[in-house]
């Protein structure tokens, strides 16, 4: 430690950055897919029930 704050810099760490972005993208895509699947299944049900 120096008077102006912590010294040094974290070197590397791109694997953590890539993991964070990939997991976020995967999570958003998975939720979108799940939502669209539920919407489609509801539409199929409505068509079966004879709704417009």
């Amino acid at each position: 430690m120096v008077e102006n704050g912590p010294a040094g810099v974290i070197v590397g760490g791109w694997n953590f950055v890539v993991a964070a972005y990939s997991i976020t993208a995967a999570g958003l895509i998975l939720y979108t897919w799940s939502l669209l699947r539920r919407i489609r299944s509801q539409r199929r049900l409505e068509r079966k029930e004879g709704k417009p």
């Binding site: 810099v9 791109w14 964070a20």
Partner: peptide
């Protein structure tokens, strides 16, 4: 990820901030 500068102490790891 590719344009913003790396942070002074955390380096490239700080890029998680843009999504976090």
């Amino acid at each position: 990820l590719f344009v913003a500068p790396a942070e002074r102490h955390m380096g490239d790891v700080q890029r998680i901030m843009y999504v976090h």
